[in-house]
Design a binder for these strands. Structure first.
Length: 467
RNA sequence: GGUCCUAUCGUCUAGUGGUUAGGACGGCAGGUUCUCAACCUGUAAACAUCGGUCCGAUUCCGAUUAGGAUCACCA
């Protein structure tokens, strides 16, 4: 039975990298008819943000990554929020102490800071100096009663720690390079390392999928599994998404907040499709595929570990592609819903009429309004100065009024006539009229737009410019 | 700086011990066209370097270089 989990720390807005991770976890679990768990890693009281958890789930819902077990859904391994599992971590921390695999440490923050600074100056790695490693049992018993303490991992000396990452060769760490990490903090909360190992084990996680940023610290994880005598899950360290300058994906250079993609009008299935291509490729080279197809084909083992750069241009292309290939009715409701969230309410019938004109012109849902605003209200300004063209517009309005049956063809035929008589080049003529009707030099096809606007409105807009 | 990871067009990638190294985005040039798109055609663009192994390496191994990650009582 495959069980994967997304370990999410509620410290801010939902991050696109979290979704990237979760997508692989989710897809792999589903492909194997297993379970996908969402666990909330809120072991840092200072950094935990009140509504972050809620937002994370809202983001997962937007992408339709429904978990099988989580704080909100429950499950047989509850609780799924680490802050509610403190007793469990403490139990194992003490077990480690009893086994001699961890020890109490009483060092103050000041001492540690000083010690680290000194080491830094000497050009050494600022690891813990093992000051409390070998205190006598009696002394420890005395001090834990009246002093503040933490529990640290006791790292064996002069050995190798080997991590088998399923996507790489064996990774060998020298134990002497591994810091004696704090496992249980003085406030009784565990640190990540203890919590993740305990939970993954207790929750039956079979495939530990996490970002490559964890790779360097994985010796601690290995040690913990060995000390606790637990069977290890399979480890997969997935590539980190990068900025164009190749640094870790950040809001400085990219858009890391899921809400940005929502606000721009990217479709969730497109974002997922795009993310699938970061480190994975379709066996037949397809780039556009459904989530079902991905789930069926995806295997964690096929992930390419070289860190990819996030290419917004390609995402935009893909989003446009999806919109073009969608049913018109679907595009309509997506647009209506998208703007409803921004409190912009459209006449749905009118929106529906405009879809054929803009479906292959918009890349994101947010492109709709700038392109189509003129359907809903007359232009407030014109991108070309039309003040010297009064005679022309007089003629046009006269000719438009002659049209009995207001259809694209009739409008087109009449305008070609009018253009001819005007002695302007076709392109010039239509550009002037386009700006008169839409206010802009770039617009959906003019005749079709005019048909939708209706005779009365078009004549009115042209007449505006004659006086 | 220590440790660890990585290395095919600008970007995402496919691929093989012998290939004209393929596709996609983006770019450029055309076509279509009342604008912009869309669509079609064409085009430029890559195996980091140096050593091995081998009849033969982009492919296997090593080193170098470059990039990245990480070094907390944060995750």
């Amino acid at each position: 039975m495959v069980r994967t989990r997304a370990a999410i720390s509620p410290t801010g807005y939902p991050h696109i990298g979290t979704i990237y991770q979760a997508w692989f976890d989710y897809a792999f679990a589903k492909k194997n008819k297993g379970q996908f768990i969402v666990r909330i890693e809120d072991t840092d009281k200072d950094r935990t943000v009140a509504d972050a958890e809620e937002k994370v789930f809202a983001a997962l819902d937007w992408f339709n990554l429904m978990e099988d077990e989580s704080p909100r859904k429950g499950g047989s391994y509850a609780p799924y929020r680490q802050s509610e599992r403190l007793e469990i971590y403490k139990k194992y921390a003490l077990e480690l102490v009893n086994k001699g695999k961890a020890y109490y440490c009483f060092c103050s923050k000041e001492r540690l800071d000083e010690m680290r600074q000194k080491k830094q100056k000497e050009g050494k790695v600022p690891m813990y100096d093992k000051h409390c490693r070998n205190l006598a049992k009696e002394e420890v018993q005395e001090r834990i009663k009246k002093e503040s303490w933490v529990i640290r991992l006791r790292v064996p000396e002069n050995t190798q720690i080997i991590m088998k990452d399923e996507l790489r060769k064996e990774i060998v760490f020298q134990s002497n390079d591994v810091d004696e990490q704090v496992l249980l903090k003085s406030d009784g909360y565990p640190t990540y390392f203890l919590a993740v190992v305990v939970d993954d084990h207790l929750m039956g996680v079979t495939h530990m999928v996490r970002g490559e940023e964890w790779l360097t610290s994985s010796a601690k994880i290995i040690l913990l599994y060995d000390f606790l005598d637990w069977k290890k899950p399979l480890f997969f360290h997935t590539p980190i998404i990068r900025n164009p300058d190749k640094s870790k994906f950040s809001k400085r250079q990219g858009h890391t907040n899921v809400s940005w993609y929502q606000e721009q009008g990217f479709l969730p299935e497109v974002v997922l499709n795009y993310l699938s291509l970061m480190g994975w490729s379709h066996p037949k080279g397809k780039e556009i595929f459904s989530r079902e197809e991905f789930i069926q084909l995806f295997d964690l083992k096929d992930i390419n570990v070289a860190a990819p750069i996030f290419d917004l241009k390609k995402l935009e292309w893909m989003n446009g592609m999806y919109i073009r290939k969608s049913q018109k009715s679907k595009v309509k409701s997506q647009i209506v819903d998208f703007y409803k969230k921004q409190k912009v309410i459209f006449d749905e019938v009118l929106v529906e009429k405009t879809i054929p004109l803009i479906q292959e012109r918009i890349k994101k849902l947010s492109d709709y309004l700038p392109m189509c605003e003129f359907f809903f209200k007359p232009p407030e300004k014109y991108e070309i100065d039309l003040s010297g063209k009064k005679e022309l517009f007089k003629q046009i309005s006269k000719d438009l009024e002659k049209i009995k049956d207001w259809t694209v063809d009739n409008i087109g035929n009449q305008l070609v006539q009018t253009a001819k008589n005007s002695e302007l080049k076709n392109s010039e003529f239509f550009m002037l009229l386009r700006v008169a009707i839409t206010g802009k030099k770039i617009s959906p096809p003019l005749n079709e737009s005019m048909e939708i606007l209706g005779k009365e409105e078009c004549v009115k807009r042209v007449k505006e410019l004659t006086g």
